[in-house]
Amino acid sequence: MDQTLLDDAVGELRAMVALDGGDVEVVSAGDGAVALRLILEGAECRECVMPRDFLEQIALDMIGSRLSEVQAVTIHDPREQD
């Protein structure tokens, strides 16, 4: 998997999530899948950040448009643990 293309796509997603005070980091990437972690520490409005399933679809579109081998994106959302 091309790390530069992955970093570019995740950078776009990070910028979008940052508008609501969150961030995203790559946990793992390989075998056609990317796992991300949503970071909400310091976010003024945790609930303003889009829901996990919506973010996963956006991330898949962003990453898949650059890396056709990526068929799945999962995001660990700390709000689902609260």
Rank of each mutant, 00 (worst) to 15 (best):
35 A>Q: 11
79 R>A: 10
56 E>G: 09
78 P>T: 04
58 I>L: 11
46 R>A: 12
68 S>T: 15
61 D>C: 09
26 V>Y: 13
79 R>N: 07
58 I>Y: 02
61 D>Q: 14
9 A>K: 08
19 L>Y: 03
31 D>W: 04
59 A>L: 05
23 D>F: 04
10 V>G: 00
26 V>Q: 05
8 D>I: 13
16 M>R: 11
50 M>A: 15
42 G>E: 02
50 M>V: 04
21 G>P: 01
27 V>D: 09
63 I>N: 00
44 E>G: 15
29 A>I: 01
49 V>E: 00
8 D>K: 15
14 R>L: 02
57 Q>T: 14
20 D>G: 07
10 V>M: 02
1 M>G: 15
18 A>K: 14
11 G>P: 05
59 A>C: 05
54 F>L: 15
69 E>V: 08
60 L>D: 07
39 I>E: 03
41 E>W: 02
4 T>L: 11
30 G>F: 04
19 L>F: 08
47 E>N: 12
16 M>I: 03
40 L>E: 08
76 H>Y: 14
36 L>W: 02
20 D>H: 10
26 V>G: 01
79 R>M: 08
49 V>N: 04
77 D>L: 08
32 G>N: 05
72 A>V: 13
35 A>N: 13
7 D>A: 14
12 E>N: 13
5 L>F: 00
43 A>I: 00
77 D>H: 08
15 A>I: 03
48 C>I: 05
65 S>N: 15
49 V>C: 05
17 V>M: 01
44 E>A: 14
73 V>R: 00
79 R>K: 12
48 C>K: 07
27 V>G: 10
63 I>R: 07
55 L>R: 01
37 R>F: 04
17 V>A: 00
55 L>I: 04
53 D>K: 10
14 R>E: 11
10 V>Q: 06
65 S>A: 15
17 V>N: 01
66 R>P: 02
71 Q>K: 13
63 I>T: 06
34 V>N: 05
70 V>R: 00
77 D>G: 03
